[in-house]
């Protein structure tokens, strides 16, 4: 990733972090995100990428947009840049912090895919997230994704992040099909 791309992504990330905070500020006490944490996120991203590259024993390994997005999800979840304190609910700070940071990570990851997709195919892609949920379990599509991401990042083996990148690929293709329908 070149310097300009990285700097642009950093400014996008900061803007998204502030929007996510604004989204929950009525519901939760949110500690304001410090823009300096962005550097940590991007440093962690590079670390994860190198780690996976070294583990798959493939010198030619290069990251595509889905892997870049998956690595960013992991780095954001690990650093948890938005710190919150519970206001209304009986859920712990840690659990809610994980949820809010997941929201930031998934929105950012989708933007990474959208931006790179546009550059590659010269057309817009709207990532689709169905609103429907299972009546019985009350689980939404995004709930399932959260559970998956939480499980993957808690595992020692970082290579499992590639599984997440394949799922992001499928989401992108699903969105593409729905868009062209």
């Amino acid at each position: 990733m070149n310097y300009e791309t990285k700097e642009s992504l950093k400014s996008l990330f900061i803007k998204l972090a502030h929007q996510i905070i604004g989204l929950y500020s009525d519901e939760l006490k949110v500690y304001i995100y410090h823009d300096e944490l962005t550097e940590d996120i991007f440093y962690e991203y590079e670390k994860i990428k190198e780690d996976i590259k070294n583990n798959i024993i493939d010198a030619e390994f290069l990251a595509d947009r889905h892997k870049i997005a998956a690595f960013f999800i992991s780095s954001i979840m690990k650093k948890e840049p938005i710190k919150i304190k519970v206001n209304k609910t009986d859920i712990s700070d840690n659990e809610l912090s994980m949820l809010v940071n997941f929201n930031l990570s998934i929105v950012f990851a989708n933007y990474v895919i959208k931006v790179f997709y546009k550059k590659r195919y010269n057309k817009e892609l709207k990532i689709i997230s169905p609103k429907s949920y299972d009546d019985k379990s009350k689980k939404t599509y995004n709930d399932q994704l959260f559970t998956l991401v939480r499980d993957i990042i808690n595992m020692e083996e970082k290579v499992l992040l590639l599984t997440l990148s394949h799922i992001l690929f499928l989401i992108e293709k699903y969105s593409e099909c729905m868009q062209n329908k």
Partner: peptide
């Protein structure tokens, strides 16, 4: 994929649809 510049529009609508 190296990109020279990153363009993004207003993403408020997306934030609502993608967040848990």
């Amino acid at each position: 994929i190296n990109i020279d510049e990153v363009e993004f529009d207003d993403f408020t609508e997306d934030i609502f649809s993608l967040t848990v």
